[in-house]
Design a protein around this nucleic acid. Structure first.
Lengths: 171, 171
DNA sequence: CGCTCCCAATATGAAAACCATAGGGATCAA
DNA sequence: TTGATCCCTATGGTTTTCATATTGGGAGCG
């Protein structure tokens, strides 16, 4: 195993008192956040992650091990006979959701041409309305909690994902 | 200039419809987020950034150029005669604050030994109380907006930063 | 058994990113 | 002139990441 990839931040990022720097030392690379996004979307299988996060299997294996070691996710067997595992977020991993929500809001606001629609639309279950980009529901004002949200992919984004999977696994 | 460092996400991260992946393609490396943190703290000078973010000058220069190109910050002359610049966040950069807030909350919650105090304590100006880890003020319930917050560094964290600066610039 | 498919990784060598260190140009103070 | 400060660039070696191919266990099938 490549040791350096597994370490947090080499120099002193894991010793600083700054929580942002600490978090960044764990999560600050090109893949981890996107992998977490997939896990939040319910894709926990190796192949799916590799496809949708656009990661090489090596990087994926390394990241998953790291995240498991850190306690953000755990392996769970979804099939015993051909022993197969999927990756599931732990409470620590689930607690990361607000970061993704904030990143989504920023990306939707600043990184899109006006043409495009919101990639993932939510329904805020308690009030039944679209909560917007958050962090609070624009309709009822409550904080957007993951448990209270139902998500729907925009048609174009769903198509993009389907295509990726189709190209990844040619029939 | 090394071309690859400047590009977003190589393969297709800037073409995906997912705002998280897009944001991650810009910001997803070991330095950028910490640099942004420093800018939010008001440290806009090259040397300070280099010291507090623990980055080599080369990486820092590259990242600053990238962030300027992307529109998150701009160079501003703070001295004309020995022409010196500092780096200041634009609206697009300022809009990134919720992400740092979410990262801070996660880091404070999951990445600290119980011993340590909160590294940065806020006062929520409208209500005068400590808003907690957010995203809404635990006292008055309003969303934590950067403009409404006054920050104080914990003594230990302030000492850590002072020491870094002292070691960086030996008297 | 012999063959193939599926899924989850690993191996390997090449390419890119990154780091440590040193240096350079501009200004100013002594 | 000498030294000091600040911002940034250059060089060369180390580490990480990528692209591609391959392994290995188990199942299904003839």
């Amino acid at each position: 195993m490549d040791s350096c990839t597994m370490e947090a931040g080499a120099s002193g990022a894991d010793q600083t008192l700054c929580p942002v720097a600490r978090a960044q030392a764990l999560v600050g690379d090109r893949f981890t956040v996107v992998i977490l996004r997939e896990l939040f979307m319910g894709n926990g299988r190796f192949e799916q992650l590799q496809c949708q996060a656009d990661v090489t299997p090596q990087m994926l294996a390394t990241r998953l091990k790291k995240l498991e070691t850190l306690g953000l996710l755990e392996r769970r067997a979804y099939s015993t006979r051909p022993l197969r595992h999927e990756y599931v977020l732990t409470p620590m991993g689930l607690a990361f959701h607000p970061v993704l929500l904030a990143l989504r809001a920023w990306g939707e606001t600043w990184l899109k041409s006006g043409e495009e629609k919101v990639a993932v639309r939510y329904v805020h279950n308690p009030c039944g309305a679209d909560p917007g980009l958050g962090p609070t529901c624009q309709n009822c004002g409550e904080v957007m909690r993951r448990d209270d949200l139902t998500s729907t992919l925009d048609e174009a984004y769903a198509a993009e994902r389907d295509k990726r999977w189709a190209d990844f696994k040619p029939r």
